[in-house]
Amino acid sequence: MNSQERLLTIFLRLQAGERLSKARLSTEFGVDPKSIQRDISRLKGTLEEKSHLGLEIVFDSLDNTYRLIGKTIFNKKDILVISKILLENRALNKSELYSLLEGLLALLSIEEKKEVFSIISSERFRYKSLTNDRDRIDTIWNLSEAIRRERMLEIEYKAPLKDAKSHIIFPVSLYYDAHYFYLVAYHLKHGKHTTFRVDRIENLSESHVKKPEIPHKFKYRDGEVRNQKVDAFEGEKINVKLRYTGIPEIVFDKFPNHEIISCDKGDMIVRIETQDTPGLKRWILGQEDEITVLDPQSLADSIQNSLEKMLKNYKK
C-alpha cells in the first residue's frame, strides 16, 4: 500500500467514526510512527484548507487517539445546558432522547464527555417520556420541509376520545409549547388556521390539492403570534387590563407585549396583548389572589363564574 492509499484508508476510517492511535496504525501498515504522524498532519492541513467541509481531526490525550468531528461552536457548558433543557421538557421519547444526547456528547472530547455525563446521568437514567411516546423527530422534520417548500398535506389526525380523521391542510408554522410540538395549518375545509398536536398525527402524505391563496393581511406570522399566546391554540386577539400584586417578571416574561399603566409598591396595573383561549383563563386562575382582571368585563365575569364553580366542588 502506497502513501496515498494509506492516507485515504485512514481518512475513511476516521469518517466512519473510528478512534485511531498512532501506534496501532504504525503496526497495521508496517511503517514508522513518524510516517503516521505525517499522514495525520497532511489530513489535518487539507481539512483546514477545505474549511467549508466543517470537519476537523482532534486528538484525545486521555486514550491517545485521533477522531474526526464536525466543527462546532458548542463547548461542554453549552452542551450541558442543552442536555438539561432536553431532559426537563420531556418532549421526546426515551429512544430519541438518548440518541440526541449521544450526538451532543460526541462533539466533546472523552474527558469532557465524562464530565457532562456525570452531571446528567441521574436525570437520564430516570427519564420518563410523555404518555404518548410516539417518535417525533422525523415527523417534525417532514412537517418543517413541507412548510419550507409550501407543500399541501393530507394528515390522519386522532383527537382525544375520537376516531382518526383525514384533513387537507396547508402547514405554515411549527413550534414547541409545554411538553408538546404543535403544527399550525390553514385548513381548507374550515377556511381558517387550525392547530394540531404533532404526536397525534398518525400519518401524513403530500396532497396534490391546489394551494390556497391567502391574502397578505391573513398570513400567519410566527414571531408576532408567539409573543401573544399563553397556550398552543388559536383565539381572537384581545387586550386585557390586569391588577397584579405578585412578582412583575411573571407577567413580563409571559407577555412580552405588555404596557405598564401604573406601578406602586407591589401594586401594578398592566395591559397585555394576548389571545382569548382556554389557556388564558387557566393562567389567570393559576395566579390565585395576586391577579384581578379589570377589563374586558366579559373575561372578568368568566373568571368569576369559574371560581364559583370551583368553590362548589369544595363545599360539603
Rank of each mutant, 00 (worst) to 15 (best):
M1F: 03
M1Q: 10
N2Q: 07
T9K: 13
R13P: 10
A16S: 14
G30W: 05
P33T: 01
K34Y: 10
D39Y: 05
G45I: 04
E49K: 13
G54L: 00
G54W: 01
L55S: 06
I57L: 10
D63N: 10
Y66H: 15
L68W: 04
I69V: 14
F74L: 15
K76R: 10
K77M: 13
V81W: 11
V81L: 15
I82A: 07
S83A: 08
I85G: 05
L86V: 00
E88R: 14
N89R: 09
A91K: 08
A91N: 06
L97E: 00
A106W: 05
E112Y: 09
E115A: 11
I119K: 09
E123K: 10
E123Y: 08
R124L: 15
K128N: 12
R134W: 05
D135S: 08
R136F: 08
I137T: 09
T139L: 12
T139V: 11
I140S: 09
E145S: 11
A146C: 05
I147C: 00
I147S: 01
R148N: 14
R151I: 11
A159L: 05
S166F: 09
I169H: 08
I169S: 05
I169R: 04
I169Y: 07
S173A: 15
L174K: 03
L183W: 01
Y186D: 01
L188E: 02
T194R: 14
I201Y: 01
N203Y: 12
H208R: 12
K210M: 11
K217V: 14
G223E: 14
E224G: 04
R226N: 11
D231T: 02
F233H: 09
G235C: 05
N239L: 11
V240Y: 00
Y244W: 07
T245S: 11
I247F: 12
I250R: 15
P256V: 01
N257T: 04
H258R: 00
I260H: 02
D267G: 01
P278N: 05
G279H: 04
L280C: 03
L285P: 00
Q287F: 07
E288D: 13
L294V: 07
D295T: 10
P296S: 02
Q297I: 11
Q304W: 06
N305E: 06
K309L: 02
N313S: 15
K315W: 11
K316E: 13
